[in-house]
Nucleic acid binder design. Structure first.
Lengths: 402, 402
DNA sequence: GCACTTCGGCAACAGCGTTGCGAAAGTAGG
DNA sequence: CCTACTTTCGCAACGCTGTTGCCGAAGTGC
């Protein structure tokens, strides 16, 4: 029944209960990174179990029958029955009514039991810490906010650890069996794999701080850190659903006080060799153009934000569109999503402006399928925190990410 | 003993001999595209077998012992013994001497039997067709060249099919049991999945032609088509070896009569949603700059080639570097490789110029690890054809690509 | 010649998905 | 109400996977 968080992705919490979600989160058995990648039977089971869980989640409250699961996964109905029986025994799935009959025994509908697992997502912003408690569905079942006073010199990163820990403990007792861990999203470059911060924008004193391990020690649960744009992109990827296990790819472009991006390729966040991918803002689109804060010239961020400051929203959108077109051409993604405060101030203008650039590009190329669509990213101010929670939830459903 | 080519990736060739390489090439069991992605025992075996084959290939003539294979894959020695026994029975692997003893029984060294499988790689260029016959190691064991007279209007794509078929048949009888198939690399946009050409540069009359299926029908063996830059990048990825199963990522930038790129992420070629990724040349780095042939303005290709035409190699390299820096920032890749005739004309200048831009970027970022290295792509004029052969060989070793 | 170390295959095993088959639970028709 | 049919789904046996326990094979070192 219990959902022990295992000891995979961070410091464990002592001997957990029966093998639960944690054991599932491991594998992938796929072409991921890592050394060996040899797959054994446990890996096989974990992979298929995660696949089934992902479909159950995608089905939502409506549920999904065993035979549908079999069709979608390519597994035999009997294999699905075994897997779902295990999930029901673990409390992760449950029967939920039955479909209308088509002339025979009606299909039994299965659904995910969202309460079987939880994760905390924390959004550390410039002046605020926002934490949400999400269940397996990603539904927010608790929220807390608090100011962040770490701006002053001398106020080290420990202050942030303490503030984040306070918010987390206020949301969920760390001994709760269903707590998978805590995901923390914050701006600026950092190393996702090691959990070490690098020159986070606005907080120079955090350079080199090992936030993940410090917070994991403090809270006693697994912790994952990532860039805010990656968290937002992950949240959007989950929200989209993507065929259940699809190869969905899109770029989330965030225009706020800065300009960043989160890339989703094959259903998972693409982080790159040093987990620094997605640096969209300092893409040069105007050789020898106006200087940017980063020291280079003609960056998208500098051009776009300058246009915004001048009140020329159309020009800002055109610049953003040029950067997006470069990105689309290089990666051949399917969708561009726009978000952030600046976009929210004039959503239609930005969507139209970026769309126009991509449409012109598609016309020139003449490729079948038409232009890559541009849409406003759904979700409100809480979406980064929700995405941060998905940093822990997604692996349960086989969305390890790159 | 025989290595039937199975019937996976294209029209089969009738009932093959014993299950061989073809059966291995299928799976991945991973996070690839496709619908189901449910993994069964066959998928598991194929995955692990491909992994072992990849390590055997990477070990080269020196070979590798069973225990080393076990360490590298994470499998138990006994599992490796079973897998290698199967491979030896199929003729894909063989014992090759033994290591020096370390106080006990010396390890038996295993090696790949390259002659157990072959693939033909064809490079269709503007005025020439070049075909190579490669064994499992990728070693070229046969080569043919012939002129291509398809430029004239009216000369349809069938002429090319016939010319390619003639070269292939001259190299390898299509009934040879060890022939896995034919890979064809050609310039310009095309759909890798369906094998349909789109406006191949220089051959407008090929628009919409289903080259893959036409050639497969003509030859009776599986055919795969891809962009020339992707083929070259795949060849480079294989040549690098990459830890055996590593997450190697790099960009191959080709500067010839045009400017293209092949992206390797996670050891496989990244092709994107519509298999059109890697369009590096028409990345805009000079908003409202000089017009490009593509109809846009300020593309890298236009700027770079114009600088080359003016004799300003340094400026050309700087422009290329700016594009490469954008790419590195977006994807966080580990390496940039340069190739093509234009680069070959002044290799040091290009490598130095691109390096300088990336070094400056790394200095600004201040990230650990230093700048992304820039190197000249190894291999000569034959490398695209060799890479095209890898389109068939790579899947045998689990390098499906994205 | 003996003790020791290390490699690698044989045999038994647990666990995976698969297949064959039958019980359960509906609809359709008398 | 009863029967015939369809469809779902679980039990049991099966083949195959990697794993474990064990032992012979083949070296080194004393």
């Amino acid at each position: 029944m219990g959902v022990g968080a295992g000891g995979d992705a961070g410091p464990g919490r002592g001997p957990g209960a029966s093998p639960g979600v944690g054991a599932v989160a491991r594998v992938g058995a796929g072409a991921g990174a890592g050394a060996g990648a040899g797959a054994n039977l446990l890996a096989l089971r974990s992979h298929n179990t995660a696949l089934v869980l992902d479909l159950l989640r995608g089905a939502g409250a409506g549920g999904i029958s065993r035979l549908e699961l079999a069709e979608r996964t390519g597994l035999t109905p009997q294999a699905v029955s075994k897997i779902t029986a295990r999930l029901r025994a673990q409390g992760l799935a449950a029967e939920a009514g039955r479909r209308a009959s088509t002339g025979g025994k009606p299909r039994t509908v299965l659904r995910l039991v969202p309460e079987a697992g939880h994760a905390v997502g924390v959004h550390v912003d410039r002046d605020e810490v926002r934490a949400v408690l999400a269940d397996l569905n990603g539904t927010v079942v608790g929220e807390r906010r608090g100011p962040l006073h770490a701006g002053g010199p001398g106020a080290g990163a420990e202050v942030v650890v303490e503030e984040v820990a306070r918010q987390v403990e206020g949301l969920a007792p760390p001994v709760a069996e269903s707590l998978l861990g805590v995901g923390v999203a914050l701006p600026g470059p950092l190393d996702h794999r090691s959990g070490v911060l690098h020159r986070v924008t606005g907080f120079p004193q955090w350079e080199g701080f090992g936030l993940r391990d410090a917070l994991a020690r403090r809270l006693g649960v697994p912790v994952v850190v990532d860039k805010d744009t990656n968290a937002a992109a992950l949240g959007l990827a989950v929200a989209r659903g993507d065929d259940g296990g699809g190869a969905g790819s899109f770029a989330y472009l965030h225009v706020g006080t800065g300009l960043g991006a989160g890339l989703v390729i094959g259903g998972g966040v693409h982080r790159g060799a040093r987990t620094g991918a997605g640096e969209f803002g300092h893409q040069v689109i105007q050789l020898d153009g106006p200087p940017c804060e980063c020291g280079d010239r003609g960056c998208v961020e500098a051009l776009c934000l300058a246009a915004v400051a001048r009140g020329e929203t159309e020009e800002a959108a055109r610049v953003l569109g040029a950067g997006a077109a470069n990105l689309v051409g290089l990666l051949d993604i399917e969708l561009v999503l726009l978000g952030g405060r600046t976009v929210a101030a004039a959503p239609d203008a930005f969507v139209a402006g970026v769309s126009a650039v991509l449409a012109a590009r598609a016309r020139r190329e003449g490729l079948p399928g038409g232009a890559v669509p541009v849409r406003l990213a759904p979700g409100g101010e809480r979406s980064v925190a929700e995405g941060a929670a998905q940093l822990l939830l997604a692996p349960v459903f086989g969305r390890g990410g790159g």
